[in-house]
Design a protein around this nucleic acid. Structure first.
Lengths: 242, 242
DNA sequence: TGCGATCCTTGATCTACATCAAGGATCCGC
DNA sequence: GCGGATCCTTGATGTAGATCAAGGATCGCA
């Protein structure tokens, strides 16, 4: 099932080669990165970085799912980002992060030490440019999520979440239906991502299930039966397909 | 009161010279920008750019306040960004924007045509770097707002909003109290920024007023009487002063 | 200086979702 | 394949904030 990640996978064989921070690199640049990189694996639930930590390394998610989250004084938490394969952790010019980074499933990262990586950016505009694109993509995603958190109903939130999973996992279409997808997180984690409680998440999933929009085979495995119905349930303006 | 913006203010005299996209530029680079720039002014309420518009120009807010907002099918709207002086509109490599940009107060922009500006970026790393910093700052702000929208109570939202105004307008402190600040938007616009209704915004302002945390002289003019009380009301973890 | 438009306040009521509660399914280590 | 931990579902009840409604303040323009 999983891509077999040895300690030294060749960049050429890497599953995220054309989407990650290295996407625009030519062979020479890739060789440079090849020598700097190292893989780290984290078990599900393990914290990768704590808020306020000094950022020793940066890197890309190769496999699995990680999440960024923020917490209030009394413990209420909000997930502020979901990192899927090819997403990047850490920013040039920042030595601290202002949120916790946690492994949601088992996660494999392709890491670089921050200092050398920042020097490399100076001389490889392809990496700097890709980093900028990734940051702007994240900004777009954050703004879509602001609309969701501020104005959408529970049902619309769940539908939007499922739609996002479908899009980001780029699953193949079969006559309007879709291959089974995996739900990479618990109801509670989904609740923290959507600004809901786990009970409401559960009720809304079952609502969409009863209406025949989605179906669960397993509680972590589901498929979309009615893609048009799903889109309609998101509340988004159909005029703009984002 | 306002900085007197003629059609051709020298960059050296510009009020946002050291915070905007040109912050890191040396004199030569500034001369280049000087020749490319032009000022545009928009009246309060005027739309600067519509969602989906082809992005002909990019630029910085010099004076006034603009806002970015997204709308659902049925008209519910959420503000996804507030642009104060020195903030930048438009992104390299994107020819479209996915939200409306509106003048909240009268706004003056320092504009550049997009195509020439993008070429300029290639050769002036100082501008490219500053653009990256600005994008990352916006990403941080967006994530703080996600926590607010998803998990804060109405009271915490209002307190956080006031705190943000205090910080961003960098008002001088006088023994814990603060100089009068201006509220650059209506109750309805604030509601759209905080994911509330205008009635709730009004009630919460009056709540904080009754408790002596803030005071209004005019409905657009107020001051913070109890800064510590304000911070306490935001719900944020005091351990991390962001 | 007067009048309509806009903006704000305040009160009464409603409702979507949170909270509280309990039981059932699934997983995992022994 | 047994027993506790974790995760999920479902029901009953509570409540923060939305919605509905009406009146008051302030603004801008003749």
């Amino acid at each position: 099932m999983n891509f077999p990640l040895k300690a030294a996978v060749k960049c050429g064989q890497c599953p995220i080669r054309h989407r990650a921070v290295c996407a625009h690199c030519d062979d020479d640049e890739l060789t440079l990165l090849e020598h700097m990189k190292s893989y780290k694996t984290f078990a599900a639930g393990e914290t990768i970085l704590w808020r306020g930590d000094e950022l020793a390394f940066v890197g890309s998610v190769v496999q699995g799912v990680a999440s960024l989250s923020k917490t209030l004084e009394d413990g209420r938490t909000q997930m502020v980002g979901l990192l899927l394969p090819s997403d990047f952790i850490g920013r040039p010019g920042r030595q601290q992060i202002e949120f916790d980074v946690t492994a949601t499933t088992e996660v494999t990262l392709c890491c670089f030490e921050r200092k050398p990586f920042e020097q490399l950016i100076q001389n490889t505009p392809h990496v700097a440019q890709r980093l900028m694109e990734l940051a702007l993509d994240e900004l777009d995603a954050a703004r879509d999520w602001m609309l969701l958190l501020g104005r959408k109903t529970a049902r619309e939130k769940i539908a939007t979440f499922v739609q996002m999973l479908v899009r980001r996992t780029q699953v193949r279409h079969i006559d309007g239906k879709l291959h089974p997808l995996s739900m990479p997180m618990t109801r509670e984690q989904i609740a923290d991502y959507l600004g809901l409680t786990l009970e409401t998440v559960s009720r809304q999933f079952n609502g969409l299930k009863k209406e025949g929009v989605i179906a669960f085979s397993d509680r972590r495995q589901f498929e979309v039966l009615d893609l048009a119905g799903l889109h309609a349930a998101t509340g988004d303006d159909a005029e703009f397909i984002s």
